[in-house]
Amino acid sequence: MRGNDGGKRLGAAELGAELGERATLVQFSSAFCQPCRATRRTLADVAGMVDGVSHVELDAEERLELVRELGILRTPTVLVLDAGGRIVRRAAGRPRKADVIAALGEAV
């Protein structure tokens, strides 16, 4: 997982969902993306294991403006946000559970 995006922040208005109390896992997916399904399960598992962490999945095709603004080039792309919505980590492709948990360590 790569480092932050220059302190860019996302909030409920951009995500269409409330931020997690401690951190938020934001997943950009597309309809026919096979790895997106596995990523959804991984992120939901981690969010269920770690108190105060939420998982928000966004359809990249429906959110093209945000995709362009954030430079999302493929799905799945996962952003890890801290409690204030600041992007602290980013990964393209299917992340491993251990990497997600490690990235959360920076956010909480």
Rank of each mutant, 00 (worst) to 15 (best):
L58C: 04
A31H: 02
R9L: 12
E106A: 11
R40D: 12
R89A: 15
R9N: 04
G11A: 00
V108F: 02
S54R: 15
E21L: 08
D5F: 14
S29M: 10
R63T: 08
A47Y: 03
E18H: 10
R9G: 01
M49D: 15
C33H: 01
D45P: 07
R41F: 12
R90D: 00
A102G: 07
R86L: 13
G3T: 12
G48F: 12
D59F: 06
P35H: 01
A103H: 01
V56L: 11
A31R: 05
T75V: 14
Q34V: 13
E62G: 10
L15K: 03
R40M: 10
G3S: 14
A98N: 11
R96W: 06
A98L: 11
V26Q: 04
P76W: 09
S30R: 09
V56G: 11
R22E: 11
A103S: 09
P76T: 01
I101P: 04
V56I: 14
P35W: 00
M49N: 10
A38W: 10
R63F: 01
L73C: 02
T75W: 06
L73E: 11
L10H: 00
G3V: 13
I101Y: 02
L104D: 01
A38T: 12
E14F: 00
L104K: 05
T75F: 06
R74E: 13
G85H: 00
T39W: 03
R74M: 15
V80G: 00
A12C: 05
A23C: 11
M1P: 15
E65M: 04
A103C: 03
V80N: 05
G3D: 15
Q34A: 14
E69H: 12
I72L: 04
V100T: 08
I101A: 13
R41H: 12
C36Y: 05
L15A: 05
E65L: 07
D99I: 05
D82W: 01
G84A: 15
T77H: 04
T39S: 08
R9A: 10
E106D: 13
L19T: 11
S30C: 04
V80R: 09
D99R: 07
K97T: 15
L81R: 02
T42F: 00
D99H: 05
A17H: 11
A47E: 07
A83Y: 04
M1T: 14
A47M: 09
V26T: 10
E62Q: 13
E14T: 00
L104W: 12
A60P: 07
R89D: 10
V67F: 07
A23R: 08
R86T: 15
R41Y: 09
E62V: 08
R2K: 10
T77D: 08
A83S: 14
T77S: 07
S29W: 06
A44P: 09
A91H: 12
A60E: 08
V53P: 02
D5M: 15
R41K: 13
D5P: 02
L66W: 06
L73I: 13
E21K: 13
E69S: 15
F32K: 09
T77Y: 01
K8D: 06
D59W: 08
L19K: 07
E14K: 00
A17W: 08
